[in-house]
Write a protein that binds this DNA or RNA. Sequence first.
DNA 1: AATGAAACT
DNA 2: GGAGTTTCATT
Length: 614
Amino acid sequence: MNSPSKSAKGKGKTMSQDYDDLRPIITYRHILSQNLGVRDPLRVIALCDSDAFYAACERVRLALDPTVPIVVQQWESLIAVSYPARKYGISRMDKIKDAKKKCPNLVAVHVATYKEGEKEPGYWDNVDTRTHKVSLDLYRRESSKIINVFKQTLPNGEIEKASIDEAFIDLTRPVREKLLERYPHLATVPEDAPDGADSPLPPPPLINWDQLGVLIPLTPQDEVSAQDELSNVESGYSTTWHDVALSIGAELMAQVREEVSKQLGYTTSAGIARNKFLAKLCASYKKPNSQSILRNDAIPYYLRPMPFQKIRFLGGKLGDALAKEYDVLIVGDLLTISLDEMQHKFGENALWVYELLRGIDRNEVKEKSTLFKSMLASKNLPKPITDPADGQHWIRVLAAELALRLKDAREEVPTLWPKTIVLHARKGYETSRSKQAAFPFTKNVTVDVIALAGNKLWKELMKDVTSINITSVQLAFTGIEAAETGQQMIHGFFKTRDAQHPPLKRPRSNSDDPLDKGVESETPNPPERQVLSLTSFVCERCHSRIALGDVRAEWNEEQRASALAMLRQEHEDFHFAQDLAGASHPIKPRSSKPVSTRSREPEPKGITKFFSKK
DNA sequence: AATGAAACT
DNA sequence: GGAGTTTCATT
Ligand SMILES: Nc1ccn([C@H]2C[C@H](O)[C@@H](COP(=O)(O)OP(=O)(O)OP(=O)(O)O)O2)c(=O)n1
């Protein structure tokens, strides 16, 4: 089947040819190929989204029954509302007071917060936005647990974390495996096939969609009819092999979601379709705790009446601009705009918008787990900082968060390291200043090391400034990279380092803090005083004494210890860098193909920057 | 390197 | 609509 015959282009009418690739011919070659990527006619993509995520996390943490109406509170407002609570008409951004009015036995949990002096977030009484900082750590951790269940359940599925509670899964491979397993005759090209491997597959079987989720209807009539193949047959619909693929994808997703539910207690909603965009869009067709399947032939009916501002990337200014420019709201209305016309008005963006509207999305599901990411902790200050000295406090809180997060991240990828640290400070609305610096390559990224670096940046930021009125502080790691190949040496580095500095067996050593190790290792079993007054150390490798260049009188012991720890780490990094330079060169990343069409999610561009500096 | 915008949860 | 993230484009 090829595209429908061309019909004349008319104004104000959407053409059936707008959706012209819904039933591509599928051949043996297709099913036997491994790497067709976005051009695979049997591609199956899923988007899985956790229901009322923050609320679910708190519900699980508190071991509450899933039916209790629970809500996550942030100051006086709500940021997540469980489905049971939604039954009472409660919505996000209701005030907690109103919510309680609507549902007197509502369970309200305030988000965990960091507060002054505490290294870890907690659930405190009397939280206050002026003194506390919201912590999303629980949700991040639960999120990564869910991702791990995905990975473990679908060893062959490519997984891309899309947000704290969403992930795309490329099911194409596992689906094809099952397809061939279940229909082994597809694996061999018949002798009498007219075009050999390029012959079309034989007719597909009927599908029993029971238990597989909700089918998004093909037509208004289909909407009211029973969801089975028989009725489809009667209405003239014929199943495709891609439908079969989708149904297998749905099976897999049902399994995965069941695992998440069993292992972790979270319900999820998923969308299953031929590409990311459609998977995402149809995931919200029915929630909670459900999954929806969008067959290719259902795309036009589903997409045309869709308000396009619901589409990812069209939810913001671009969507507004489109709506305003053409004075329309739904996808169908935009189909009348020619590509040329759109390119004229929207340049760069035009092509992929044009394609999106037609259900085309060429983006791959790419595993980007932790790679290529930055890590930012920030705090808006309702009560602005006016004294530069007060910056320290918040920087320390942010540093604590970053330390925790990096530690968590390294549990999965131990060789993760941030190349730079950057501090932003915003005054009022607009006018933000930032300052960045290289971050030492070290395993022991402690609160102190981060805070010290942050404070240094803060000072640079604050100097040559008379009046300050900081309303927002942000501390971030950027250029976080994982050493992948040829990294035995880095593992080695970490190991030797630990071996060289084993925790000394001192009864009440706070051995949790690697900082202690370093200091102590230079002066075994020293009296506390002595340790605390050190301002230099002797390097075991080069036997020189390395001293702090600048010891400030106003430093307290903690600050001094931090400074020393950082100095030591910098010095060790220096040695490590030398070692590296002498060793065979580590990374050469995977191929980066030049193919890429303009897309909103550009292909990885500069992976080659890896280790490029000497 | 610094700043800012945009999009999203 | 608040708070927090992340990425990208521009300067
Ligand atoms: N404007 C927003 C949107 C979301 N979130 C947070 C709270 C949500 O729990 C989490 C996930 O966002 P979703 O948009 O996926 O919404 P929910 O998971 O809460 O509900 P749903 O079941 O509709 O996905 O992100 C937020 O803080 N602010």
